[in-house]
Design a protein around this nucleic acid. Sequence first.
RNA 1: GGGUAGUUAGCUCAGUGGGAGAGCGUCCGGUUUACACCCGGAAGGUCGUAGGUUCAAAUCCUGCACUACCCACCA
Length: 911
Amino acid sequence: MKDIELQKTYNPKIVEEKIYNFWQTKKLEHSEIDLNKQPFVIVIPPPNITGALHMGHALNNTLQDVIIRYARMNGYNTLWVAGTDHGGIATQNVVERLLLKEGKTRNHLGREKFLEYMWHWREQTGDTILMQLKKLGCLCDWSRTRFTMDDVCSKAVYKAFIRLYNEGYIYRGDRIVNWCPRCNTALADIEVEYRQQKGKLWYIKYPLKEDNSRFIVVATVRPETMLGDTAVAVNPTDARYKNFVGKTAILPLMNREIKIVSDDVVDPEFGSGAVKVTPAHDTTDFEIAQRHNLEIFKVIDEDGRMINVGKYTGMERFKCREQVVEDLTSLGLIEKVEDYTHNVGVCYRCSTVIEPLVSQQWFVKMQDIARKAYNAIKEGKVSYYPENWKEHTLNWLENIKDWCISRQIWWGHRIPVYYCKEMKTQECETKNGIIVSEENLQSCPYCGSENIVQDEDVLDTWFSSALWPFSVFGWGVNENNAELKYYYPTQILVTGYEILYLWVARMIMMGLHFLNEVPFKEVFVHGIVRDLHGKKMSKSLGNVIDPLDVVEKYGTDALRFTLVSSTTAGRDIHLSEESFVLSRNFMNKIYNMTRFILMNISQQDVQLIKDWIKNFSSLKTSSLNIAEEWIVYELNLLITKIKQYYKKYLLGTIAHELYEFVWFKFCDWYLETAKIDLQKDERKVTTLGLLLVILNKILKLLHPIIPFFTEYIYQNIKSFFDEEEKESILNTKFAEEFELEFDNFKVLSYNVIKNIISEIRSIRNEFKLPLNIKPNIIIVAENQKILDTIKNYSHYIIRLSLINDICFVNKYTDEFKKPLHSATAVFEITKEFGTLELYVLLEEIIDLEKEKQRLKKEIEETEKFFISLEQKLNNFEFLTKAPQNEVEKVKEKYLLTKEKIEKIRRYYQQL
RNA sequence: GGGUAGUUAGCUCAGUGGGAGAGCGUCCGGUUUACACCCGGAAGGUCGUAGGUUCAAAUCCUGCACUACCCACCA
């Protein structure tokens, strides 16, 4: 694959295609049980089969891929399990919409045909997203791909249900559930979103039975529900209503007698202080009804239409509201109407206003199960990154409610419960005719009756998701299998915070309950992808950035690099198109830097360079020049930092550090000095060898983030290394620090040279020197050693700052008079080396007024700092209370700054 | 109503006790042959606000304002 092309621009499309095909043949992602190696496992948050890849997926999976590749390069037996989620209501909605286009509804087809249709649809399109993940470079072991409704996972679902049922954790009960009249199903509390909505608060007069000229006034935002009222409640301490409690009121429009009761939940401050009680359609009212044994009277059906209410029957609930208000108004029973803003619950899928409905549902009793999870998290068996989500999860677990797991749809795991209609035996009767069975039953196992029916409902989609970390390893088929033993618990779960409770907490609970071990040791929580201004991406806002478009335009690696570098500790990500341009440019930069290196290698040098690289590890830094020593030193610092950041999963910081090092240190500085070295034949091999060694390290550091690009470059340079046997960069070891002893003086000297060059450039710009004017400069120092070192490398300064020549002056031994027509700068180095003066000889070009201003500004800035140092040192408390090394540091800076400022002042005055 | 996070350059964000940083944008200058998807330079900030702790605060604490998200049964 030696084909770095001559084009000046990196073409991701061609390269990524090539590398993708290369990987396809290598099956690098495959993992097998290897007891000699430590496993490092990630189980994917399974995307919904309806989903086309969006930015959230791209982010989530890129992060996982970075982590898995890093672990892989550190010698772990990595496994990333892929799969998809059947997605319950969301998926059924999508398919029903498709059906509707054909003019059909699910009821036309019937359950069986409808499911057939759905499975067929899934076969055709369900794996699209997995293909897209593959293209993203995700190192999932595709041979293990699972689906929440495949045989293996379904077995786990039934097994879990039956076990929970037998253990007494699953029960069936009457509850007020959040009903979505559009989706026609119950929703869990966490599937309900609240929206603030402007509404009205109606005050309605209910006449008293004993004296219909007297009224009790109730306030409500939902007048239509009054038709189902079975009581009025007031606070027991409310003096206004003391005499009403126990009396009977007449429900207007319905002319039903209802009781007036007292209950603590009623807030006397709100509205009129009296509450209408509609047990069938309000959670609080339902609770009141249970405490007072009130009748439950259902007036709204599953489609959101009125029932059992005479002339209102069949009306849509909001239409009915208008009608009720109109009728009450004409009866003179509306006392007043107020504007009122309140929260309305809506379905998280379709935003339809939720109707609280009383109905029979299956529930999981959560308290015991949650306590186990609570303790495990508290004990640190699961670590959260960033940590603050730990506390959130604990809070949620503490206040957990029972989990409604039945859903009134067809797509999903059908609840494995049968009802015997006959109950012919005693045994059958004690069981209430409820049969829980994984098998497809034809007759009742208790009484033999063939008159049995299976529960119509399916399980909440999150029920199967909660089992995902172990169902994928075949727990449902055989819970003692070797894979489960080896791979479970997994290492880390990567997810957005929006499903922390919906999913993550439940996995922890189920993992602990069924396997007695947490399903993952770590949870990495990332934010949600938003647009540049923090708005959620949505089609209606038109601010969606499609990852596939980005890949098309800028390449997969650019997408990945941007996503990773935008990730900061659990915060939301604000994406803009231009951020991908930056990443694309970064890739191009490295591409060209590589081209430069390879272009400079002549055929006859290849072997020499290989030999040099082979011996590099035994080299001493003394054979390196200061630029080389500096860059190697900086690279070591970088590697150390990056390894630490990985421990804390600070992936965004890692991307930033790499960007900075490669561009600003390696390319802008080292490569520029290397160009100068390359002109001397005797330095050529060393320079090129070192450039390749560093490039190789950089590739490895970058590989987890931009795998395609780094693989491509690696394939083009790997022949220089003893790594011929490594087919892919993925099989190499992650970059380690060089084991070298550094000479701090060399590093320091190089930094001084850098500063001198920058300063000269700045002066050139300030005085608008054209490029063809190359002034002479004078460097004055107090220390001969540093003067000699700079002298040795003066060619760097001459080339990089475009000057003619340098004159070196030792302040103590040489005669020196400050040249008048020059621009001046003073540098502080260290206590040992003192300060250094720079004169750029400008002769008649200089504008002395400008130089004056330049120095004045410098003096002002330095003075500000100097005064702060002085104040510190004059402060007795600072001297006594601050740590000694801080005081020392300030003292040193003080002396240096003093020297500097005095010098600049003197020059200023001479002008 | 409760909780959490955020408020730093025009924009997007780093920085968690010792001289305010990056990228983009802006302005100035560049065919320095790896890269114009580039190079060099510059301007731009009383670090939301009011207090407090400390020798020292963008950084720690408290109040307030605004923003975002999560949670909650207030009709």
